[in-house]
């Protein structure tokens, strides 16, 4: 399905290597994220939550930001991944990495099987189909209480120490490091996928699906492929949530989860991979500050800020990131590098 990645013709490999270079800001972001583990020990729990939201938003960015698939149903894959990891832990083993794999595979399977529903119709149809799919899975989980625990949530989830060494404690110390490691791997994989002919073809499809087809891009298989990959990412996010919380309930499949992902991506910006990270950080910080200031009305203020933010301009975070990248490139590598960054994707 992703033949464009494996059969790069002559000359293309060099171009792909150039496209896959890490930026200064990107490296700096990861240094800060790792430094937070050492210097902000009292914030590990919220940081782990931010990373979880970032992965959920990243899964949405893959399909929306790169392939133009609008979705209100990421919670279906997130929730199924969460329950799959929870059931795997409760009935097979609590080993986290294999549980993560199970969650990812479950999310991918749901996306693959429902992806065919997205091939007909445009944005509104896709919104309704994804919303409907999520609602169906929510109701299945609710009715199958013998398996999922229904409204009471799944009991008996335990997460074994990571690599047999690191216990998941109540302070989120292991949870944050683990979540950050998972996010890093997912970003690396996404970078490789997106800086490939396959990734470029997704953006071509997003620009104009009919034209993409007429220049030889297999539109439907590629849409299903990226939707499946996005589903795997959402499933991993769900599994990570279950493993770090050692609990999973119907909330994982709720519309609110999909809405959170979309809201975070709206704040952080689409189509540059880090929109989820930036958005999750900003969203959680605002939520934290507002819930402290006005515990009863914080959702009102969040809603108001979101409306204002969208009206002012959703492209601003991305433009800000780009401007900072250029400044940093100037600082670290002189004018030649800054010119290179300026030429890169806006």
């Amino acid at each position: 399905m992703v033949s464009g990645m494996s059969s790069a013709p002559a000359g293309v490999a060099g171009a792909l290597r150039r496209a896959n270079r890490w930026g200064v800001l990107e490296i700096l972001l990861w240094i800060l994220a790792v430094a937070a583990w050492f210097f902000l020990p009292e914030q590990h729990l919220i940081l782990a939550e931010i990373v979880n939201f970032a992965i959920l938003a990243l899964s949405l960015d893959l399909i929306l930001g790169y392939a133009g698939i609008v979705s209100l149903g990421q919670s279906a894959m997130y929730g199924v991944g969460a329950y799959a990891a929870g059931l795997f832990s409760a009935h097979v083993t609590g080993e986290p990495l294999s549980g993560l794999l199970v969650g990812g595979l479950a999310g991918a399977a749901v996306a693959f099987l429902t992806g065919f529903l997205l091939l007909r119709g445009a944005d509104l149809t896709r919104l309704m189909v994804t919303l409907g799919v999520a609602a169906v899975f929510m109701e299945i989980a609710n009715q199958a209480d013998w398996l999922t625990g229904g409204a009471d949530g799944l009991q008996g989830v335990e997460t074994a120490p990571l690599f047999g060494l690191f216990e998941f404690d109540i302070f989120g110390r292991t949870a944050y490091a683990y979540s950050l490691g998972v996010l890093f791997v997912l970003i690396v994989v996404a970078r490789i996928v997106l800086a490939s002919p396959f990734g470029y073809s997704l953006r071509a499809i997003r620009d104009n699906p009919l034209r993409a087809s007429a220049v030889g891009i297999p539109v439907n298989p590629r849409l299903i492929a990226i939707y499946t990959l996005g589903g795997a990412y959402a499933g991993i996010a769900g599994a990570l949530f279950t493993q770090t919380q050692m609990f999973v309930s119907l909330d994982a499949l709720s519309f609110q989860k999909s809405a959170d992902g979309l809201m975070i991506l709206t704040i952080g910006g689409t189509g540059y991979l880090y929109g989820g990270v930036v958005g999750a950080l900003v969203y959680k910080l605002i939520q934290d500050v507002l819930s402290n200031l006005t515990p009863q009305y914080w959702q009102f203020w969040i809603g108001l800020l979101l409306v204002a933010f969208v009206l002012i301009g959703r492209e601003r975070p991305r433009a800000l990131v780009r401007a900072v990248s250029i400044r940093l490139a100037r600082l670290f590598a002189g004018k030649a590098a800054s010119r290179r960054v300026a030429e890169e994707k806006p």
């Binding site: 790069a8 013709p9 293309v12 171009a15 496209a19 002919p197 071509a204 620009d207 891009i217």
Partner: peptide, 24 residues
């Protein structure tokens, strides 16, 4: 029908197939 959000090189590599006509 150029894809506006892709660079020149990305427009080409998005569709390239093995054969005599390469990027070079």
């Amino acid at each position: 029908g150029i894809f506006r959000s892709l660079t020149v090189e990305e427009n080409i590599t998005a569709v390239a197939r093995p054969g005599r006509w390469t990027l070079e």
